[in-house]
Write a protein that binds this DNA or RNA. Structure first.
Lengths: 235, 235
DNA sequence: TAGATTGTTAATCGATTAACAATC
DNA sequence: TAGATTGTTAATCGATTAACAATC
């Protein structure tokens, strides 16, 4: 009783991908799918799919598989997509503007209520009908409108302090695009998008690939040399 | 000999974070650091740091710790940051524009050589001196300039085909921002940035937090009820 | 030298995969 | 009913943590 087995982050991080694949199946009017078939499409094991889903309950039926629409909706619920959140964007540079213009987030219940920047040239401008305000207004706005989430798209030098301020002012979640680790109380949820980390991972993988190819080439050449030596000796 | 123990993705994904922390230490003129102290700053175990680093060699010294600058440079090498790559951006919408304007990538050796879009209103415009070209020019450009990496910031309906085209035209890596899993030959490296997945993870965590708080509140209320009952009986 | 801290082996923990009884 | 496929337990695998001898 009350013994919620803590669900691992590995599982949680896979849920959006399941959701994505089920959404596609739904679009293609597929009504049912087995763990085996889904596993083949997704390139994972059927066992993992069944294990992952059974963390949250039994959504399938023996001998039948899973009803696509039902499972899609259930995963949506698990992800909390039926909630709506009041969102602000702090830092309306290139990336902030891009996110402000991105209407898809609202479909997931993330409604942008305010935009904030320090740059006087931006303040007063509007994006999708929302005026960019001076960051001095941030505290009052967050408290008055009971903002849930702040998207942090500002220079790392400022992100840390603003993140802590927002935590104090009652923000529930931070979607952080700055290449730093925010230090906030643990009741404030932080989800990071570290683009530079992602780029470095890409760099690593490209470099690894390059080295492997070089190695293989060398191996081929050594082999070629041996063969030609062999031939020389023979002839 | 030639028995490279394959390094796990978990380790690789942690390298950029080490690199980040070491960079900060370097900026603060810290010359040496022990695994223990770094572990405290980063919120990981010292054991993990030593294990991770020893996948690539012994960079420290017993009784001393690690030289910050040396370790920073070595991790930079491991990440392949001394390489330079020719990059194009395919899809110059809000996000593509933001990335095109982001100069930090060039510091990591990712040099943007071309921008491509299908939208006639964008074609001919320039960002940081680079003209946006019609996507029809893509094949010739990639082949002629031997482009290494394509950043895919286009609608998911188009990303899949373009990704496959680019693979055929000799691209080495794809930095994919579309919410799909690209199907390309395995010699083409794909690094995904799934913003919508990240947002759904945030949504999950917020929802979980909300439920936990609700549960705790209920528990407190039940407890309060019991106490008041108890008091009632007593008085 | 004595103290500190690495590199590395061994122990533990957790996550993934395999197997199969339950059941639709 | 027979076949299919889940839900779940057990086995395996891999990753993390602990421990400590080596050594600066």
């Amino acid at each position: 009783m009350g013994e919620e087995k803590k669900i691992s982050m590995a599982v949680i991080k896979r849920l959006p991908r399941y959701f994505r694949y089920l959404g596609e199946l739904l679009e293609n009017d597929v009504t049912r799918i087995s763990s085996r078939e889904l596993s083949e499409r997704m390139g994972v094991t059927a066992s993992q799919i069944r294990q992952d889903l059974n963390n949250f309950g039994g959504f399938g039926q023996q001998g039948y598989g899973y009803n696509v629409e039902y499972l899609y909706n259930e995963i949506g619920k698990i992800l909390g997509l039926e909630n709506t959140y009041k969102v602000i964007i702090v830092g309306v540079g290139n990336l902030g503007q891009a996110l402000a213009n991105y209407t898809n987030f609202e479909k997931r219940g993330f409604v942008i209520k305010g935009l904030f920047d320090i740059n006087p040239r931006l303040i007063g401008m509007s994006i999708r009908g929302i005026e960019i305000q001076d960051i001095d207004e941030l505290e009052d706005f967050v408290k008055e409108h009971e903002i849930d989430i702040a998207i942090l798209t500002l220079p790392k030098t400022k992100a840390s302090k603003i993140g802590q301020d927002l935590a104090r002012w009652g923000i529930k979640g931070l979607w952080n695009f700055s290449p730093i680790d925010l230090k906030v109380p643990k009741h404030v949820i932080v989800e990071n998008v570290h683009l530079s980390d992602s780029l470095m991972t890409l760099s690593y993988k490209l470099n690894e690939q390059k080295m492997q190819q070089k190695q293989e080439k060398q191996k081929r050449e050594t082999l070629g040399l041996k063969i030609s030596n062999h031939n020389t000796r023979k002839s």
